[in-house]
Design a protein around this nucleic acid. Sequence first.
DNA 1: TCATAATGACATATATATATTGCAAAATGA
DNA 2: TCATTTTGCAATATATATATGTCATTATGA
Lengths: 67, 67
Amino acid sequence: MTMKNIKMKIARVEHDLSQEELAKRVGVSRQTIGLIELGKYNPTLSLCKAICRALDKTLDELFWEEE
Amino acid sequence: MTMKNIKMKIARVEHDLSQEELAKRVGVSRQTIGLIELGKYNPTLSLCKAICRALDKTLDELFWEEE
DNA sequence: TCATAATGACATATATATATTGCAAAATGA
DNA sequence: TCATTTTGCAATATATATATGTCATTATGA
């Protein structure tokens, strides 16, 4: 869809989590996490929040871009 | 779904916009805006961003709650 | 008061987020 | 190298976000 979410990928790697591990913690499939990182999905707010909590970040830190 | 988004409603009123006017600016239906404010919808990230831009707020300001 | 605008509620239809499965291509570590 | 893990990709199925239309209720302003 739009562009890669490199910030999310970095935060995930910083937590030493694979896509699959993050997916499990967040309660979603591995593919969903992968596609969000690739920028090919438009996730729901509740999923964004769950990812943020799992990675100790806020929405702005992972999903907001100024401009 | 979860709970009312009072912050979004306040920001909208501060901009002197009706639900219908905000909906038009954001490219979505009036009902969608209304249901998001009522906390009965789980909007997509792209819609959240569009609402934020229309109301001069960030994701954290309208959609994030600490804890 | 009263007319109008704004909002909530509900039903049905459609688009799309997400799940699931399987396989291929990279990446990683020994 | 090679075995294993990780990630990308694709197809199909399902759940749900969103649209549309209508009506009832609640603000709002004159």
